[in-house]
């Protein structure tokens, strides 16, 4: 099969982490966050980690919405910790949202990109990050002050420290190809919206 060429001159360590271990190792207590999780892998794993909990809005479509939704939620709930977690494909689709987020810079918002370098839901085609595009450098270029890249378990403690500290931050979690944790979750978005608001706002 013909392959796309890698971008010349980009040297990155090969991704070795298994997302089924790496994501829970980074996000230890998802129940402590208000979470917007992008399609598809991160929504599956955050819903699995919380047993489809009401504090997680997991997307099943509207690709590119995740980071912007997390921003709106963080601005609306300045006293709660908000986690926007998504994959490389979704982040690339609306990459300008990183600039919007950097400008607004809510101190209660953390962004995590689980970067497997592939479009895992559609036949595992290479994504641009799998061919050398570096989202951590892009995030820094947009002006996000705290950017951390996790290539191995040794990088995980710093990621956890950043998640626990105040201030906007972007964490790139580089993982190898492979499935996300998955349990049944509601794919009826109006049900997910209503239960999220009921749990948070009581209405």
């Amino acid at each position: 099969m013909a392959q796309l060429k890698r971008i010349a001159g980009v040297n990155q360590p090969a991704a070795t982490l298994d997302r089924r271990e790496a994501v829970p190792a980074l996000i230890e207590r998802p129940q402590d966050w208000l979470v917007v999780a992008g399609l598809a892998g991160t929504a599956q794993e955050l819903c699995a980690m919380t047993d489809d909990g009401p504090n997680v809005f997991g997307l099943g479509g509207a690709m590119g919405a995740g980071p912007s939704m997390a921003l709106g939620l963080a601005l609306a709930q300045p006293n709660r910790r908000v986690l926007g977690i998504t994959g490389d494909g979704e982040l690339l689709m609306n990459i300008g949202a990183l600039g919007t987020i950097a400008l607004a810079a809510p101190a209660n918002l953390k962004l995590v990109c689980v970067d497997n370098g592939h479009y895992g839901e559609t036949g595992n085609q290479d994504s641009q990050t799998g061919l050398g595009v570096q989202l951590d450098r892009i995030a820094a270029g947009f002006g996000i002050a705290v950017v951390h890249t996790i290539n191995t378990m040794a990088d995980m403690a710093e990621g956890r420290r950043i998640l626990a500290a105040p201030g906007l931050a972007f964490i790139l979690l580089r993982v190898k190809e492979g499935p996300a944790m998955k349990k049944p979750r509601s794919l009826r978005p109006h049900v997910v919206r209503d239960r999220f608001r009921a749990a948070l706002l009581g209405r």
Partner: peptide
């Protein structure tokens, strides 16, 4: 998307 997130947060 931003305003959907705003609504989630009330």
């Amino acid at each position: 998307a931003l305003l959907a997130g705003a609504d989630l947060g009330g």
